[in-house]
Write a protein that binds this DNA or RNA. Structure first.
Lengths: 251, 251
DNA sequence: GTGACTTTGTGCCCGGGTTCACAAGTGACT
DNA sequence: AGTCACTTGTGAACCCGGGCACAAAGTCAC
């Protein structure tokens, strides 16, 4: 995040208009929403989805208060309200939020109403797992293309998708309307793959290889470093062991 | 930053400060190193490792300046120096850092000299991939145990490790000295698995299931939500497409 | 209609992370 | 020995997200 590109937080404060003709309410002005807030918004939406699925509104009238929703998600109620206020807040004071309307607003803001085809590059263990990961299509991210360089893998189906030659990335990505590219290759190939994806028109990349990727400024890169997560846990373990008993079992 | 940790309500969040100056740990000279800094320290160490491996010091005398190292990692030189200052800074003014000594210091601080056995729970696609992920053992995190509930999987080897019954978690974790648990199960089972791991003595957990996990206060939890990463990329995609309307809004 | 209660929206403060800029220390060169 | 170029270490300003608390606003009861 901070290591790769200076995130394109367009200078100034250009407000933005609703994507499509949002019929109800006045124009909701969307400022630059903090990333942490966007992450939580998805959590709110997920909880609301689950409530709607079960049909179990918290109340009979289909409203939910910030306290209740915050409790379900596990965040501070004030934070939730502030998060929602970025969207123009359509809550009703004294009552709460209309669950259905809030859900619709969140879907609109997060683009949850449409799908974003994904391509996975590198059909190793990790790539195959990602291709079969049910959480992706469930949240609007169907994996529509797999790429590799191994002739033994090209042409064979993995998780229901035929693996393509990475050299055909541009063609396949265009055909499948790929919007997001996922790099699951060994580290040495990651930069090369990123270049290929960018050349194929992909402007959003999720990389699993450690190390930095250099891409044009208009390409958004996110990195997930699995080993780093363990390393951070290990660091807390060290600190903990340092404070307590290093090797001793019980004093 | 990197991933989003949204479960501040329950478990070990970013920092748990005592409300008042209750003087918790009197003599803990443990300088509280910011998490972001720890993450970068590992990046520095990795780059130094690679340099040492290649034998290509930037200079003949085995020193490296903050500018050079920062350039290799892709961060601001001042940030790098401040990061290193948390460790007590063993650099030499006018010269730079002794690469070997710095590497040793980082290894010591990050605990990179020892290994932290890992257990993976949930031997599905993702769990299998994690069990075989070469980046884990390469950075000191050997996967020593696999757990599942499926009788068809229990007893069979995956990535060279025999899958154990989750009910034997306590036994196996103790035997293998497991320090870190990784939850790669479907969402509904995640909380149950977390409870089992905690009962087995694991105090560091990496979860891949969305949704919050509630654990005792002394257990450190990190979450990696793969679909969330895509969602954040999609949000930038929306914003980007929306910019098409360069309308001025309220002042 | 009025009063009391509930809940939202948000101004304000705070703590932490990032960046700048500069003093201080070190080796090299004359 | 003296000077100078170079690099580290860090104090201070800035920016941003989180949390508290309160006023505004709406509902319900009568």
């Amino acid at each position: 995040m901070s290591t790769i590109v200076a995130d394109g937080a367009t200078a100034g404060g250009p407000a933005r208009l609703p994507p499509i003709g949002a019929a109800p309410g006045p124009g909701l002005r969307l400022r630059t929403i903090p990333e942490a807030t966007v992450a939580r918004l998805t959590a709110y939406l997920r909880v609301l989805d689950r409530c709607a699925m079960v049909g179990a509104e918290l109340r009979g009238d289909g409203t939910i208060s910030s306290d209740e929703l915050a409790g379900l998600v596990g965040v501070n109620p004030a934070k939730l309200r502030k998060d929602l206020s970025y969207l123009g807040s359509h809550g009703t004071r004294g009552v709460g939020y209309d669950a259905a309307a809030l859900r619709s607003t969140l879907q609109q803001a997060l683009g949850a109403h449409e799908t974003y085809p994904v391509a996975v590059v590198g059909v190793g263990h990790l790539g195959s797992a990602l291709a079969a990961y049910p959480g992706f299509p469930a949240r609007g991210f169907p994996v529509r293309a797999l790429f590799d360089t191994d002739p033994l893998k090209i042409g064979r189906p993995v998780a229901g998708i035929t693996v393509s030659d990475i050299r055909e990335a541009a063609l396949v990505c265009r055909r499948e309307d790929v919007v997001i590219g996922v790099i699951a290759t060994p580290e040495p190939a990651a930069q090369r793959v990123a270049d290929v994806l960018v050349a194929a028109g992909v402007r959003s990349i999720l990389g699993f290889a450690p190390g930095q990727l250099t891409v044009p400024a208009d390409v958004e890169v996110r990195r997930v470093d699995l080993a780093l997560e363990l390393q951070l846990l290990a660091f807390h373990e060290i600190r903990r062991g340092d404070v307590a008993a290093p090797r001793q079992a019980v004093p």
